[in-house]
Design a binder for these strands. Sequence first.
RNA 1: GCCACUAUAGUCUAGCGGUUAGGACGUUGGCCUCUCACGCCGAAGACCCGGGUUCGAUUCCCGGUGGUGGUGCCA
Length: 482
Amino acid sequence: MNGKDTTVRTRFAPSPTGYLHIGGLRTALYAYLFARKHGGKFILRIEDTDRTREVKGAVDIIISAMQKAGMDYDEGPIVGGDFGPYVQSERKEIYLKYAHELVARGGAYYCFCTKERLEELHANGATKYDKHCLNMSKKEIDERIARGEPYVIRQNIPEHGTSTYHDEVFGDITVDFKDLEDNILIKTDGMPTYNFANVIDDHLMGITHCIRGVEYLMSTPKYNLLYDAFGWERPVYVHLQPIMRDATHKLSKRDGDAGFEDFLRKGFLPHAIVNYIALLGWNPKDNREKLSMSELVELFSIDGLQKSSSIFDETKMRWLNSLYIKEMPQQEFHAAALPFYAEYGIDKCACDLEYLSELLQPRVEILSDIKEKAAFLTAFDTTAKTPFDLALFENKKWKTDAAMAKSIMDDCIEITKSATTDLGEKLNALAEAKGLKKGQVLWIYRIALTGAAATPGGGEEMVKLFGKPAALERLEKVKSAL
RNA sequence: GCCACUAUAGUCUAGCGGUUAGGACGUUGGCCUCUCACGCCGAAGACCCGGGUUCGAUUCCCGGUGGUGGUGCCA
């Protein structure tokens, strides 16, 4: 990039909110893919300069989510690295040092304005800070600091002129300085704001490509002013449009389940989620949609990034998830299904759970579909005289009804008793002997076994699922009910 | 309010001056089939509006409109 021989270094810099948002995960993913694609480093940095929003355990949540998503980072909390610490709250002195240097260079200044004065300013129609403290004498500054007056350090933005930079997805962006404010770099508590820490860290950590949300598109010239003031090289900028919940709302944790972990809990597979969000706002140049992490790494390119925002479509993610479920090894699917069986009380059903998994695997899109797909297990009330509504035997297409069921139930029971692997053949023979269609016998047989209009499999599968003794018990119940 | 970004079917997208506007999800018709699901074959469905530029605009320019973002001692 930039024609320079530099090793690519990208970072994901979340603030620890207590969960990993889907939008954040995608930003992380693109930064990760870009770094891996170019054989560079991917860094995790925690942006926790707002101490009032501290959430305990939040960093661990982010790290574990990234692990599950298959994104390993080269430097960051826990693993360390040559440019640490990687948690901003532990870098306070570093920011202060650079802030003072910036003041000395004229790029920033001390400001003692009170909240009251600032409010008055805005009440009088001002849209931005009036540089009131800009030309304060060194003497006065020292005195007021010595007196213990609270102060902040503000960036000194030129009053006139414009600034242009190149964004890899949006092209050249020009911003007029008059639309920018002398924002605060160091707060009264001595901590930096994002506006400052971000630049200092990106430079100190050698970040070459700054991949982040569009919310920073307009303020980037301010950051460039900082890079320039220190004589540092600016990074390459890549701004990303947000993921939306609908046309007018951003996907947000508050409005529902926008957390990565929430989707995991619903039975989405980590990689299906990653695969899906990779395609939200980016596309490889061919029509492939199901892509492994290594394929994503191989195909990722900034020019496939979308300039407009995209709406999150859980339905499509379900489809992608179903593709991954179908290709899981049977045992793996079974293991993944077990916790859901337990949650829905299915683990206590009198049936072969492993076989149930076999039947369910091609039929569920996400693991929590198991609840609905396994509901048929309780359709047959083994304790009632009439185990289910006998009207279920009626089928328009096959012209079956309870009377027909009654006429063959004895044979069904006999066949079930004697059959080994030839159950299907014997049922066919029964149909022939009775002058019925195969479908009629099979429909009646399956209904009699389950009491459910729809089941994940046919009559033969149901016998196997319940086991022969239980199946016979069911048929006997139906017989007496008829 | 001011500033910026953005705009192809319901959704995700391909397209980069001339195309029957391509693919996917979803929807839908059919086949397969003892039900469900899978699978297979079809169908419907889009270039925000108005001006330019051009022989010709979905594509380039301007304006409008819609949407989003920024305008925080949040990031």
